[in-house]
Structure formats: structure tokens, C-alpha cells
Amino acid sequence: MSTVLPQIPAVLDLAGTAVFALTGALLAARLRQTFVTMAFFALITGVGGGSVRDLLIGAPVFWVRDPWVAPVCLAVALIAWFTPRKWWEGELLDWADAAGLAAYAVLGTAKALAFAIAPVPAVLMGVITGCVGGVIRDVLAGRPSIIMRPEIYVTAAALASALCAAGAWLGLPREASWTVAALAGFALRGLAITRGLALPSYKREEG
């Protein structure tokens, strides 16, 4: 097994977790839930995808070992509780989420590859890292999850993950391939935000 695990600056790592946690906390606020629910939504959205990935690839669950991740999620919930929801909603949060999605898709893929996971499952681990926290959040909230909506979201994570795995397979410099992969995923998600880009729905008639 490779021991070269992917590394990104700790501050950026926590910032990405905080963005995902904030989307969970804001959903609880929109549903007018208690602080307990808000904190739970923040935590599950922030760490859900990475937790599922780590369990599947046989790695220590990242946030259990990192003393800062859970406090950051709970701090985000506190901030969301004591501030007006309108401060956080809008395109700024969408763009921050897009950056987190792309970065964590790449990180998840790279970590899976470092644990000797084959390229195609590693790509799926990247998608899981970027998306599953939001899926769990939406299911718990009783609303259609991101995988049930046509907007480009999971596809952007898949693009970033696939390019990351392709770069590793081709033996390209790690930092360069990670950067290109993350930027590509971010750009695709950005097109969905600015142009309403969405996947076509199934329309085949019966008969």
C-alpha cells in the first residue's frame, strides 16, 4: 500500500469542511429546526462524504483523528444560529460550495489511490467525498437530494475525480494534475451556477 497520502494546507481543508457544514446548518435554519438539529446537519454535511470514503477504503475516519474538524462544524452551526440566514445565502455560498466540491472530489480520489484503490473505484470515492454529505443532509431533511436533481453538481465532482485519476495513471506531476482537475470541476459547476446548465432528463415514451 502506498503511504504517500494527499496533503492540502490545514486551513484550506478546514475551510472546505466549514463551507459544507454551513450548507447543512442553513438548511436546518430554513426548516426552522432546533440548534441540536442545526449542529447535527452541519456535522453530517461537513464530514459525511469523507467518512463514507474512509470506511470504504479501510482508512482511519479522518475527522475522528483530527481534533479540529468537529469543533469547526459546531462553531459554524453556532454562527449560523446567531446570525440572519440572509447573510449567508446567495451566489457567494454557491461559489464557495463549488470550490469545496471540486477540491474534495480531487482529495477523495487522491486518497483512495494512495490506499491502492483501482482508478475507477477511486474516482467514485472522489464523488462520494464531495457529494455524499449533501445527499445525507437532504435525505434527513425529507427533500429531493442533489442526485435527484438535473443541475450539474455530481457531474462536476465526477469530472474533477476522473481528471485526478487520469493524471495519476499517466504519471503526471501530482500538484499540476490536482490543480487542473479541481479547476475543471469548479468551472463546470460554475457554468451550472451562471448558465443554469443541467443534464437532460429521461424522456423516452412507453410503447
Rank of each mutant, 00 (worst) to 15 (best):
V4L: 15
L5A: 15
L12G: 13
D13W: 02
G16C: 13
A18Q: 11
V19W: 01
V19C: 10
F20E: 00
G24C: 07
G24Q: 05
A25P: 05
L27E: 08
A28I: 12
A28C: 08
R30L: 10
T34Y: 07
M38N: 09
V47N: 03
G50K: 01
I57P: 03
A59V: 03
P60F: 04
W63A: 08
W63D: 03
P67K: 02
V69C: 07
V72W: 02
V72T: 11
A77R: 11
A77V: 02
I79A: 14
A80L: 06
F82H: 08
F82W: 15
T83S: 11
T83A: 13
P84V: 13
P84E: 12
R85T: 14
R85P: 15
W87H: 14
L92A: 12
L93A: 15
D94W: 08
D97N: 05
G100A: 01
G100Y: 00
L101F: 01
A102M: 05
A103D: 06
A105I: 00
F115M: 07
A118P: 06
P119D: 12
P121N: 04
V127M: 15
T129S: 15
L140K: 10
A141I: 06
M148Y: 07
P150C: 11
E151G: 09
I152N: 00
T155N: 13
A158F: 05
A160D: 00
A160Q: 00
A162D: 04
G171W: 13
L172S: 14
L172G: 05
R174A: 10
R174I: 10
A176Y: 05
S177C: 12
R189P: 01
A192T: 02
I193S: 13
L197N: 06
A198R: 11
P200L: 03
Y202F: 08
K203D: 04
E205M: 02
G207E: 09
